[in-house]
Design a binder for these strands. Structure first.
Length: 572
RNA sequence: CGGGGUGUGGCGCAGCCUGGUAGCGCGCUCCGUUCGGGUCGGAGAGGUCCCCGGUUCAAAUCCGGGCACCCCGACCA
């Protein structure tokens, strides 16, 4: 065996000894591209629903992503630490999150209640109580910590799981201005991280949720398997999760305005489609009424244009809390009519109407079964509170520039969030300012899931043969295929090339297995290291090897001595 | 939580309706062959048929209950 190959630090990974169980067939359970390829390439294995082990090659990739995140977090002054998964229930009781349904709860042998952390705001704020002075601020702390979440439905391999490692960081500032600085520092770090990972992504303003923050962005990587939908403008850089996106709906041609609404008999027309067909009108000139019971227990009528869909989250925000659809008997009592014939005219319950309905005249339910009203106008025929409560749909106008919106699926790979004092107040994390006054720390929290990031990379970088890793996150830079591995000369040259490539600073997987060429090539394509080098009799006749770029398929013969330089060029 | 589906060697599946010998392809081991895109031939190893209960002389198969996993939806700090 050549001496070089035995020296520490110059050992390539040998495929003959590597636990890399690639699969020839697609696993039956895998639907999403990343899920299928992670399993087939031998990178992960499922242990239970939403529970995965990273196999050696997969873990290398995870570590690559982690290291990129670490470098960029350190670059903005982050300090790495580590917090436990198992946490006392008391912390969660103090912040009011003990009731969250995703929390895994358990008791110790003394029946003391514990929680498996789903995120670490509670724990980190507990530590932040040791920050005492404005002189110590700002601080950014981060860790790669395991999170456990009792997800209602884990899915698509690593895209939604019940246990995962998350880079979560937390900033502590004296005031909103300070928080703003920490927040945008994170945004910059996140852009660098995802750029380095080779991801296409959108930085979107997102919903602050029920956590009561003041600003949040999420980083969404477009891909078919995504669980989120992003609205994107074809003209400007507007991008927003449909949960918060707004749009300009084109106005239809309305019927001529009437002096007052006119009743019309509409037997059996209890859906917008049926109504529009019966009257021969544009569904966009109708309105749709959905009675709901708001957070205070009061009945409220939500009103949107006939062709629009009510957006639950938006209505929830407009109502100030959760709501449910009204029951049929509640509807009967309040409207003296049934669902399908409801409208805003002549009722006493409050109305929340979508902004679109401010102008124009619409066909609306008459609150009399089998009848509708023509020419209903907001303001004249009913009074409503207006709000944006409808879903954005593709083809509508960009709220910023008037361009056309399209909607794409995407996966959330990171988020940044201005928390304010949501956790510092209940957990008593305060500091003393110059004036000697006690003030709560102003916090931000920021998350990235390395595993989800890596899955998103696969979603965006694959072909019919397998994965095409960007060099920065590839398990190895170079995959050397030694043809006819029993041949001594081929093996010797393969090891020599391997050592030279490693000496130039690149990592190598050396396929020294005694397998047929086809199988080795298939595995190399599947695993997707950016550069493949083939050493065989044919190449050695030329004193050369073949160097192939996985992503493009471009291949060329390169003299053995020139290989490190060529590899360097390709990986740049 | 609602709907749909699947549980049979490591992987992908057939067998189940119509009860009786557990089978195919891939992979694995050994021998030979072949050696630049999953070669060919031969010989082998490997299975509580998800679990529990019932019916029956006899259950992978029929019946009851449970569990697990997948997909759709709800949900998703």
């Amino acid at each position: 065996m050549p001496l070089l190959a035995t020296l520490p630090g110059t050992m390539p990974t040998r495929a003959s000894q590597l636990f890399l169980p690639t699969l020839r067939d697609d696993p039956a359970e895998a639907e999403a591209a990343s899920h299928r390829l992670l399993l087939r390439a031998g990178l992960i294995r499922q242990v239970g629903a939403g529970l995965y082990s990273f196999l050696p090659a997969g873990w290398r990739i995870h570590q690559k992503v982690v290291q990129i995140i670490r470098e960029e977090m350190d670059a903005i002054g982050g300090q790495e630490l580590l917090m436990p998964l198992l946490t006392p229930a008391e912390l969660w009781q103090k912040t009011g999150r003990y009731g969250v349904s995703e929390l895994y709860k358990l008791n110790d042998r003394n029946e003391r209640p514990f929680v498996l952390a789903m995120t670490h705001e509670e724990t980190v704020t507990f530590h932040a109580t040791e920050l005492n002075s404005y002189k110590q601020l700002p601080q950014i702390w981060y860790h790669f910590g395991t999170k456990a979440r009792d997800e209602p439905r884990p899915r698509a391999g690593l895209l939604r799981v019940r246990e995962f490692i998350m880079k979560d960081s937390y900033s502590f500032d004296r005031d909103e201005q300070g928080l703003d600085v920490s927040y945008w520092k994170h945004a910059e770090a996140y852009r660098r991280i995802f750029d380095r990972c080779g991801l296409e992504y959108y930085e979107c303003e997102s919903d602050v949720g029920l956590m009561g923050g003041s600003l949040a962005h999420e980083y969404l990587a477009p891909c078919d398997a995504g669980e989120n939908e992003v609205a994107l403008c074809d003209r400007c850089d507007y991008s927003a999760n449909v949960e918060v996106a707004s749009s300009v709906a084109a106005a239809p041609a309305f019927a001529p305005s009437r002096e007052q609404p006119e009743e019309i008999e509409t037997p059996n027309a209890t859906t917008i489609d049926a109504l529009a067909a019966l009257l021969g009108i544009d569904p966009r000139t109708t309105s749709k009424a959905m009675p709901v019971v708001g957070p205070d227990g009061q009945l409220v009528l939500g009103l949107v244009r006939g062709d629009h869909r009510l957006h639950e989250l938006k209505l929830q925000k407009a109502l100030g809390g959760e709501f449910r659809p009204a029951h049929p008997d509640e509807i009967r009592t309040a409207f003296d009519a049934d669902g399908g014939s409801l409208g805003p005219v002549g009722i006493t319950i409050p109305i929340i109407a979508d902004e679109t309905l401010r102008t124009g005249n619409y066909v609306a339910g008459a609150n009399r079964n089998g009848w509708h009203l023509l020419g209903v106008e907001a303001g004249r025929d009913y009074q409503a509170r207006f709000a944006d409560i409808r879903e954005v749909s593709a083809g509508e106008g960009c709220p910023r520039c008037g361009g056309t919106l399209r909607i794409e699926p995407a996966i959330e790979i990171g988020n940044i969030f201005k928390l304010g004092t949501r956790y510092s107040v209940p957990l008593g994390a305060q500091f003393l300012d110059e004036a000697g006054e006690q003030r709560p720390l102003v916090m931000g929290s920021y998350g990235i899931g390395p595993a989800r990031t890596l899955a998103a990379v696969i979603e965006q970088h694959n072909d019919d043969k397998g994965i095409c890793w960007p060099a920065a996150v590839a398990p190895w830079h170079v995959h050397i295929v030694a043809m006819n591995a029993a041949g001594e000369e081929v093996v010797a040259i393969a090891e020599q090339v391997s050592a030279a490539v490693e000496a130039a600073g690149h990592t190598v997987l050396l396929d020294d297995r005694e397998k047929r060429p086809g199988e080795k090539f298939a595995d190399a394509d599947l695993l997707g290291c950016p550069v493949r080098i083939t050493v065989g009799k044919k190449t050695l006749e030329d004193g050369a090897v073949d160097v192939k770029l996985r992503a493009t398929g471009e291949e060329g013969r390169v003299a053995v001595a020139a290989v490190p330089a060529r590899v360097g060029e390709l990986l740049r």
